[in-house]
């Protein structure tokens, strides 16, 4: 039998992604949002025909509530985060909203720094409950006001947050594995 092949260490880009070529997004909706929140929304953009806006983190709840109540974006499709370590506020939270009335989908993005809790939106969209727990589990972003912020996919006493960029794909809480599974390594 031949020797065990050596696994290549995968290359993971540690740098933040380059800027994307964003077009300006202008519509009646952006006008109403700008009138309401002014400088709180720093950018209305669109990439490949998909509109998004960037809002200040402390305004997240107000913006989402406004979109839900006044603009009929009554469906939270997804809530996730992107880690961009180069930035001062490294995490980008992405809320994908859908409106059944207008058949439109928009993204609301905010930024939070490491160790800073974002406001929980479970009060606006109950669907965010598990989604926020998953973001907390994978990135270590706290959510202030979440009813039960615990890990969801990984065990409660696991250490580390796998989807942070600096976490290697081969990294694993080996102590937990030894303690709980009685094997040397989970790899």
């Amino acid at each position: 039998m031949s020797e065990v092949p050596t696994a290549h260490t995968p290359k993971v880009h540690a740098h933040a992604p380059a800027e994307m070529a964003v077009e300006t997004w202008e519509s009646a909706l952006t006008g109403r949002l700008a009138a309401r929140f002014g400088g709180g929304i720093s950018r209305f953009g669109s990439y490949l025909g998909q509109p998004f806006l960037e809002a200040r983190a402390d305004l997240t709840l107000d913006v989402l509530r406004f979109l839900r109540d006044e603009e009929a974006f009554d469906f939270l499709v997804d809530l996730t985060a992107v880690d961009r370590p180069g930035h001062a506020e490294r995490f980008e939270l992405v809320y994908i909203l859908y409106s059944f009335a207008s058949n439109e989908r928009i993204r609301v993005k905010t930024r939070v720094g490491d160790g800073v809790a974002a406001p929980s939106v479970t009060g606006v969209y109950p669907a965010a409950d598990w989604l926020e727990r998953e973001v907390f589990d994978m990135f270590g972003i706290g959510f202030a006001g979440h009813p039960k912020l615990r890990r969801i996919l990984l065990p409660d006493d696991w250490s580390g947050h796998p989807l942070r960029r600096e976490t290697s794909i081969l990294a694993m809480d080996q102590d937990w594995v030894r303690r709980n599974l009685g094997i040397e390594s989970g790899q």
């Binding site: 880009h13 380059a18 998909q50």
Partner: peptide, 28 residues
């Protein structure tokens, strides 16, 4: 570099992929 959210009607419901690219070979 860019990001898209594309979703389809899977048998279970809306299956979406949010893919972010940094211009590299691997998805960011």
């Amino acid at each position: 570099p860019g990001e898209v959210y594309v979703s389809i009607e899977a048998p279970k419901g809306e299956l979406g992929y949010y893919v972010v690219s940094d211009g590299g070979k691997n998805p960011y």
